[in-house]
Write a protein that binds this DNA or RNA. Structure first.
Lengths: 204, 204
DNA sequence: CTTTTTGTCTATACACTGTTTAGATTGCGT
DNA sequence: ACGCAATCTAAACAGTGTATAGACAAAAAG
C-alpha cells in the first residue's frame, strides 16, 4: 500500500511520502516497530535519503508527532461544545483517553521525548493549540483567566486538568485499564463506562 | 565504578552484578542510553553472557523495573502516615511525583511496556504492592472497601487516585512542569510548590 | 538551446545493536 | 577423582542510524 512507485530518479514529494509511510508503520506496528529504513523502503527510496529531508530520524518523527497533536486538537476542539464546568472537563478527558486508546502508536510517540525534538517550534505550537480546549474548560470551571499564548506561562489549574487526562490515557494505552475489568478482553464500551465513573469521581 | 573485576572464569554473582550495572547505566544515561552490551561490559563479561541469566534484554530490564517499583512502594508507604482523607492523597501524589523527578531513568523504564515483560508475576506483584498505600488512601477518603489483593479487580476510585499522580509524574519527567515556571531552570523546590498548588486544586 | 548550478537521491561504509550457536572452562555432587 | 551440570566466551548474523562521496535530474543562467 501507499508504496509510492518511482517513475523518475527524483521522487517528487518524498518528504510527505516519508511522513505518511512513518504514520502507517506506527499505526500498524507501533513506535517500537518503526524503523527509519523501513519508512525509506516503503517510500521506495534508499536508506540515506530521509536524512536530507529531516536531518535525522528524530526530525521525521517530530513531524509525525506534530500531526498527531493536530489530530488530537481537532478531536478535543469539538468535544466540549455546549458544555460547561465539570461536564466540559469530563467530556474533554474522555475524548483525550479515547484518542490515546484508538491511536496507541501515535500517542506513545507523543510521549517519547527521546525520539522527537521537543524544542521544535512547530511541535510546541501544535501542543499548545491542542491543549487550548482544556485550558478554556479549566478557565470556565475555576474562574481562571484565559491562559497566555506562550506555553511557558500555564496555570496550575490547567495542569490539574491535564494531569488526570494524561494519566488515564497512559493507563489505558498500557492495558492497565483493561486489566481492571472483569473480562480480560478490551471492550471499548465497558472501558468508556469505567472512564466515566472515574471522571465522575474526579469532577462530580 | 562497580566494574566487577574478574578473578576467575566464572563471575560468581553475575546475575545481580548485571542488575546493578543496568541500574547505574539507567541512572546515569537514562533508558535511552542503556544497552545490554554496555551492561555486560560494565560487569566485565562477554555480550552473550546476560542471555543465559535473563533470557533477553527485556528479562533484565524487568528485574530493574521490579526493583524500581519496590523502591517507589517504600517511599509511598511512609508518606501517608498519620494523614487522612484528601491530605493523605495529596501527600502520596507529591511523593509519587518526587520519585519520578528524582529517578527519571527508572520511572521512564517503568512506563516502557515495550522494554519489560509486563506479564511477569513478580513484576505484577511489585506493582500491586507499590500501589497499596494509594488504594488505602482512596478507600479512606471515599468510603471504598479495602481492595482485593488481585490487581485485576481494582476500583474506579483507585484509578481516580492513580491517574493524576501518573499524569503529573509524566509531565514532570518530560520537563513540561519546569516549562510552566517563570525560570527555565529546574528548581526542585519551586516545582514542589507548583505540584502542591495542583494537588490542592484537585483534592481541596 | 546550451551550459551551469542547485537540489535530490544512491551506494557504500562504519560503528553499533540484541541474539544465536558451538565450544571452552569451571565448580559441585557423588 | 570423576562426571555432570552450570556458566561463560568467541564468533557470527541480521539489523539499525548516520556520514561521505558521487551520480543524476531539474531549474536557472547565459
Amino acid at each position: 500500500m501507499t508504496k509510492t512507485k518511482r517513475d523518475s530518479y527524483h521522487h517528487g514529494d518524498l518528504r510527505s511520502a516519508l511522513i505518511s509511510a512513518a504514520e502507517e508503520i506506527i499505526a500498524a506496528e507501533g513506535v517500537e516497530g518503526f524503523t527509519l529504513r523501513k519508512a525509506a523502503r516503503k517510500a521506495g527510496v534508499s536508506p540515506g535519503a530521509p536524512t536530507h529531508h529531516f536531518g535525522s530520524m528524530a526530525g521525521l518523527l517530530t513531524q509525525v508527532a506534530r500531526r498527531s497533536y493536530e489530530a488530537l486538537g481537532k478531536q478535543l476542539a469539538g468535544a466540549a461544545e455546549g458544555l460547561e464546568g465539570n461536564a466540559a472537563l469530563r467530556a474533554l478527558t474522555a475524548v483525550y483517553v479515547r484518542f490515546a486508546r484508538d491511536n496507541t502508536g501515535r500517542f506513545r510517540l507523543m510521549g517519547r521525548t527521546d525520539l522527537i525534538e521537543l524544542e521544535d517550534d512547530d511541535l510546541r505550537a501544535a501542543v499548545y493549540r491542542a491543549m487550548r480546549p482544556l485550558a478554556a474548560a479549566a478557565a470556565g470551571t475555576r474562574g481562571l483567566g484565559v491562559p497566555t499564548p506562550e506555553f511557558e506561562r500555564l496555570d496550575p489549574r490547567l495542569i490539574a486538568a491535564i494531569a488526570p487526562a494524561h494519566g488515564l490515557a497512559h493507563l489505558a494505552t498500557e492495558g492497565r485499564l483493561a486489566a481492571t475489568m472483569r473480562s480480560g478482553e478490551v471492550d471499548a464500551q465497558a472501558q468508556d463506562a469505567l472512564v466515566d465513573e472515574v471522571l465522575r469521581a474526579l469532577w462530580p
